[in-house]
């Protein structure tokens, strides 16, 4: 078997094992309702994490994600409140904006040969600041079209509801997987993650690929912002602080090598679901503090870092 698949396999095993333990303790967790909620509650994180997966596969990092999600929420809320633009146009405008924002960061990273960490850190402050400029307070969204988006769901067998935003997340996983694993762009991303100097020698268009990577992440962050706005019916500039770190955690727990070049988009979905599952378990338990989520995620991250080290040592015989 290809050793590249091992982390993905480990992630899947851990998720299934954790789910089995949950079911043993709370048999009612085995229902499509729980699954439906798991997908809905984590939809925005999942979408952002898919963008992050592509960035990390290339050996980079995008710290602006959480701020961009918050900006997106405020932007949508303010535009719907203050202008007469149709909602779909507002959403299209927002996606264009965040995609351009990501592309600009990618361009800077390449042109200035700066570490992505610094450039996207600047982007993080910038997007958060712009959100504050638009509004200091939480802005409710009561556009009827938006309300209908929030209410849209498909009733799964077993009375579970697959909400529209969960569907958007699953579709994003599919698109992300195709982009990362079945396109020339995806191959270039992997090549960049394997080693920039070698990738350049092999003719990978470094500039274009870098810009596209961060543009993709910006698009996904914008989409996550839309989903978050639908989920909360509001735009709030203080929302989703630190979500970029949750996204990075989900990517690593999903089996992607933090140094780049190896990993799967599907793994990230499982990483997101594992993190959501821990939260669900704590809700079911009722007596545990929600901070236990953080502790378990910390432990899982550590485990995966160890696993990756072991694989790296095992890899080249």
């Amino acid at each position: 078997m290809n050793p590249r698949l091992l982390p993905l396999l480990a992630t899947t095993m851990i998720f299934l094992l954790a789910y089995a333990i949950c079911i043993l303790q709370f048999p009612s967790m085995l229902s499509t309702r729980v699954v439906g909620n798991l997908l809905t509650d984590n939809a925005y994180l999942g979408i952002a994490a898919i963008g992050m997966t592509v960035v990390i596969l290339s050996g980079g990092i995008d710290l602006s994600v959480g701020s961009v999600i918050a900006f997106a929420g405020v932007f949508i809320a303010v535009m719907l409140r203050d202008t007469a633009l149709p909602p779909l146009l507002v959403l299209a405008l927002l996606l264009a904006l965040t995609t351009g924002f990501g592309a600009a960061m990618g361009g800077l990273i390449h042109l200035l040969a700066m570490p992505p960490f610094i450039v996207t850190l600047a982007g993080m402050f910038l997007a958060r600041g712009l959100a504050y400029v638009l509004s200091i307070d939480s802005v409710p969204i009561d556009d009827p079209f938006f309300k209908s988006l929030q209410g849209a769901y498909w009733l799964m067998p077993g009375k579970g509801r697959l909400h529209l935003i969960a569907g958007i997340m699953l579709a994003s996983v599919l698109v992300g997987a195709l982009v990362a694993h079945r396109t020339r762009f995806g191959a270039n991303v992997m090549a960049l993650g394997g080693g920039e100097a070698t990738a350049r020698l092999m003719g990978v268009p470094i500039a274009r690929t870098t810009v596209l990577i961060y543009a993709f992440s910006g698009f996904m962050a914008g989409l996550a912002g839309i989903v978050f706005a639908i989920y909360t019916s509001a735009g709030y500039p203080l929302a989703t602080v630190g979500v970029e770190l949750n996204a990075i955690a989900a990517v690593v727990i999903g089996g992607t090598l933090l140094s780049g070049g190896s990993g799967y988009v599907v793994g990230t979905l499982i990483g997101v679901l594992t993190m959501g599952l821990i939260q669900t378990y704590i809700v079911f338990d009722g007596s545990l503090s929600s901070w236990w989520t953080k502790i378990v995620i910390g432990g899982l991250l550590f485990l995966f870092i160890l696993l990756q080290k072991a694989l790296l040592r095992l890899g080249p015989r």
Partner: peptide, 25 residues
Amino acid sequence: VNLLANLTVAENLTLGRQPRRFGLV
């Protein structure tokens, strides 16, 4: 430093000129 150890042999050989169908590799 010639090729990328994290890609498959086939990906290394065809990088940049992968055969495509419907836009996908």
